[in-house]
């Protein structure tokens, strides 16, 4: 039986971690809503990728593979954590909120956290990672049709929740132009 000796770290993997770990973390923190959980998920995903690095590095899109692992680990995380909504946490970043409307930001994030995990993941992969519906389907192992319906339902929930706010903004704009 051929045994695998402990490997030295391959330079390609070092480069991959340096180049992509930040982006993976940003995706993970949006999906799970918790910095520490996101860090653990990215760590675990990269560990799994490293065990298959010879194969992964030969792929045309290694990050897609790692993102898929990350998404699956996130689903496992949710199953273990139960179905309760993820709470908003204190932020650790030094960067201020750059979104002009803080209230709208918080409202959307609150809605995002209340979405079912898969629906939330679809939104993050589509509108943060800018993946196509087909790419999202491949990452999550679901059909394109499911991606479309999950995305549409999620956007409908956002639109419905933001409708009173949008109505108020429209009224304000009309008042200014009157």
């Amino acid at each position: 039986m051929k045994r695998r000796p402990p490997p030295s770290v391959e330079p390609g993997f070092v480069e991959f971690v340096a180049a992509r770990s930040a982006a993976l973390f940003r995706t993970a923190v949006l999906i799970v809503g918790d910095r520490h959980a996101a860090e653990d998920l990215v760590q675990s995903a990269l560990e799994r990728a490293y065990r298959h690095w010879g194969r992964v590095s030969a792929m045309d899109a290694p990050e897609a593979y790692v993102r898929r692992i990350l998404a699956n680990l996130a689903m496992d995380h949710f199953r273990a954590a139960g179905r309760r909504p993820v709470e908003l946490l204190e932020y650790d970043g030094a960067a201020p909120d750059v979104y002009p409307d803080v209230d709208e930001h918080d409202a959307v994030i609150r809605i995002l956290r209340e979405l079912p995990p898969r629906m939330r993941t679809v939104l993050v992969l589509r509108y943060f990672d800018d993946l196509t519906e087909t790419q999202v389907a491949e990452v999550l192992g679901i059909t394109v049709g499911t991606v479309k319906s999950q995305g549409a339902r999620a956007l409908a929930k956002l639109r419905e929740a933001m409708a009173p706010q949008e109505a108020a903004e429209q009224a304000e704009q009309e008042e200014r132009t009157a």
């Binding site: 930040a22 910095r35 750059v98 943060f128």
Partner: peptide
Amino acid sequence: LTGILNAEADRHDIPVFSA
């Protein structure tokens, strides 16, 4: 949504991952 997600992601410090 895209703008909010990006702003939200920016609010977290990026940890260092050691290869």
